[in-house]
Nucleic acid binder design. Structure first.
Length: 106
DNA sequence: GAATTGACGCGGC
DNA sequence: GGCCGCGCCAATT
């Protein structure tokens, strides 16, 4: 785990997401060199903790919503709060306006 | 070394 | 327009 693997590659991409912006699993996977492997991104972030230097909270699913509700009940509320603190807004459906906050590499 | 799981994506109904 | 099931690769045990 110490050696750079596929996971490390994904972490590097997530670290590049600037505050106030979000990216989808598919995007992160593609940027990490793993197009179509959104599950790997989820698996990699799952191994992270809130103490990690990786802003995993800025990574959301393609629907623009938080996926934690599936594995960590109530955890999505925690993530939502973090994003709102960065300037990311949610709609009535607890979804992020991807059209506005979706981060793209420059 | 092999089997199972996993923060998802997309197609189909 | 929303809900269900299948499939991809890597990491973990």
């Amino acid at each position: 785990m110490e050696l750079p693997g596929k996971h490390q590659r994904i972490y590097a991409i997530v670290r590049q997401i600037p505050p106030g912006h979000v990216a989808t699993y598919g995007d992160v996977a593609a940027l990490a060199g793993l197009p179509g492997h959104a599950r790997l991104v989820g698996y990699a972030l799952h191994a992270l903790t809130e103490f990690s230097d990786v802003p995993w909270q800025r990574v959301i699913n393609a629907r623009g919503a938080i996926s934690l509700g599936r594995a960590y009940p109530g955890g999505e509320l925690h993530q939502r709060r973090l994003l709102e603190a960065e300037g990311v807004e949610f709609d009535a459906n607890a979804k992020i306006n991807l059209k506005r906050f979706r981060w793209r590499p420059v």
